[in-house]
């Protein structure tokens, strides 16, 4: 059913006439041109499509757009603000915590969500938190280091 859906997207209010059953991933990528969230598996197994809805990581390929009505959606494009990278982004760069980069946006947003719940996780907690995010290049060890480092930079706080 075509409906008008309002939500906040990367800190700005947006309004969209759309079939509410369409998955958020495709709406973000095609209607908004925000291609940071990736299609990796289409069934919620890989995490490449991860975005934040009210600061919680969700799989955009499994989230109908109507489910975000009235909520706040953050994609990787909205994470850096006022030209300043988020500590997680800084840490991923500093630790070379990526290779091909296809899983990276989802990985960073999942880590963001994890740090909301557990501001100073140890490596084992990070591994558990990111367990269902796949990285085929094998950057795992560096991703854990980067998330730990970012958590310390954020001093346990979860503001940006």
């Amino acid at each position: 059913m075509i409906q008008t859906i309002r939500f906040t997207l990367n800190h700005k209010p947006v309004r969209l006439r759309v079939d509410g059953e369409r998955m958020l991933l495709w709406v973000l990528r095609t209607d908004f041109g925000l291609t940071g969230a990736k299609y990796g598996c289409g069934e919620g197994f890989c995490g490449a499509c991860t975005v934040l809805v009210n600061d919680v990581a969700v799989r955009a390929c499994q989230t109908p757009v109507k489910a975000v009505a009235g909520k706040s959606v953050l994609t990787i494009e909205g994470l850096a603000q006022n030209g300043k990278l988020h500590p997680l982004q800084e840490a991923f760069i500093k630790h070379d915590a990526l290779q091909c980069g296809f899983c990276t946006p989802g990985m960073i947003l999942a880590a963001y969500s994890l740090l909301q719940q557990s501001p100073l996780p140890d490596p084992a907690e990070i591994a558990v938190g990111l367990e269902d995010h796949l990285c085929r290049c094998g950057a795992h060890q560096r991703i854990i280091l980067a998330v730990q480092d970012a958590a310390q930079q954020m001093k346990g706080g979860n503001d940006k």
Binding site: G36, A37, I76, F92, I93, D96, G101, T104, P105
Partner: peptide
């Protein structure tokens, strides 16, 4: 040396084939 493509890859700016519209 650190990767030179990391900035675009952590900000979502990096374009893969599927990102071309």
């Amino acid at each position: 040396m650190l990767r030179r493509d990391a900035l675009e890859k952590v900000t979502g700016a990096a374009k893969f084939a599927g990102d071309i519209q």
